[in-house]
Design a protein around this nucleic acid. Structure first.
Lengths: 211, 211
DNA sequence: ATTTACAGAACGATCGTTCGTTCAGAAGAC
DNA sequence: GTCTTCTGAACGAACGATCGTTCTGTAAAT
């Protein structure tokens, strides 16, 4: 029975960052689970679905993960880690000007969501399928990324470079623009990922009333 | 086992628009299902969970809906209908100026997502849990709402009132700002729903480079 | 008397997980 | 260099629980 599905996830394989997941069968499990969880959601994809796609028996998965929830937890944690590293790295390389810092953050944020659409979807939609204990590492990472964004907005305001009507609402809007990329952006369209990132940078600077 | 959960959904009852769902037990089922589907997702909430919250036996639900999927389908359809009616009504009342039209659309869009956060979440996250046939009515409504937004952006560009770097990306960003409201906005905060809508209107006009 | 809304029991299917086993390959003993 | 031991990954069967749904009966309302 066919389901509707975001158009941006056309790629046959779900992209998992090279740094994440380890190697061998363990990594294969994470890659296929990423694909299935993104398409069917955590509760909608069964261990047997996952095993079938891997051409393994369901029981074989338990040699690599202690439960289905632990597979999701690792995806969600790794996704948040890659995102935070990307945003933080861009920020550190951006110098002291809040406008440059904001450009760097938005660019990194957009690149992540355009480059890893499956991971972005799973990270954002399935985190709350985890018990608090398993979600905690990802929640902590998310808090850091949010704080970076809020701090740059606030610093820009304090320095007179940004003049948004409402700082928190602006920060939320900036985050939202990136978060939704996997649901509409088609990487094979006329707008590639790099161009999209630059367009979002431009939109954000306009929103903030920057130079 | 506690799960993480959007902060904006603090309200005890999940709000369902008065126009939607009918009356009596049928409406109660939709209200409680809305609450559960928003919190646990469609696959994560069982018929027995739903019946327990309603203080009914599972079998009693089938006097009102022919399947679990039909409950979700009705929520998703009604949600899209209320959203489209709201946006279209605002647009029709706005006159011919694209700036006024955009203000009206963004205001209606934001009000919907702030006023019906549970419904907005279910509409956006659980639509793809439905087989194409059951999703079709909602998909058709969604297409109309998207077209309204895109048309207003395009008309504003043609008339020289908007100058976004990329029309489609701008339209997506505008939609995204509203869609994410249920995940962060706390209606009991200093920023109420009406103020939030005005802030988003302001952000959007800046983005579009309008007057 | 018919219809409606529910209860209660039960259906087969599928869920996540565990069990005992097999088998290939590495490590160590002789 | 051969034999033995151990380890890790995988299979196939099975577990109890829960899934969505259906059936039968009943009590109240029309």
């Amino acid at each position: 029975m066919p389901r509707t599905f975001p158009s941006g996830l056309t790629s046959k394989k779900a992209l998992l960052p090279p740094s994440a997941g380890g190697d061998g069968t363990r990594r294969r499990i994470l890659e296929v689970a990423l694909q299935l969880f993104a398409r069917d959601s955590f509760h909608g994809a069964s261990i047997r679905d996952l095993a079938r796609a891997l051409e393994l028996q369901p029981s074989a998965l338990y040699a690599h993960f202690s439960s289905k929830e632990h597979v999701l937890a690792e995806l969600v944690r790794a996704g948040h880690e890659v995102h935070l590293d990307s945003v933080r790295g861009a920020l550190l390389a951006a110098g002291a000007d809040p406008v440059d810092q904001m450009k760097a953050i938005v660019r990194a944020h957009a690149r992540f969501h355009a480059g890893y659409p499956h991971l972005a979807i799973v990270v954002n939609e399935e985190l709350h399928a985890l018990p608090a204990e398993l979600a905690a590492p990802a929640v902590a990472l998310r808090g850091q990324a949010t704080a970076l964004m809020v701090d740059v907005v606030q610093r820009g305001i304090d320095m007179g470079r940004f003049k948004p009507t409402h700082a928190a609402a602006a920060a939320a809007a900036i985050g939202a623009m990136g978060l939704r990329i996997p649901y509409w952006h088609d990487p094979s369209s006329d707008l590639d990922s790099e161009q999209l990132a630059e367009v979002q940078v431009d939109l954000v600077l306009r929103m903030l009333g920057g130079a």
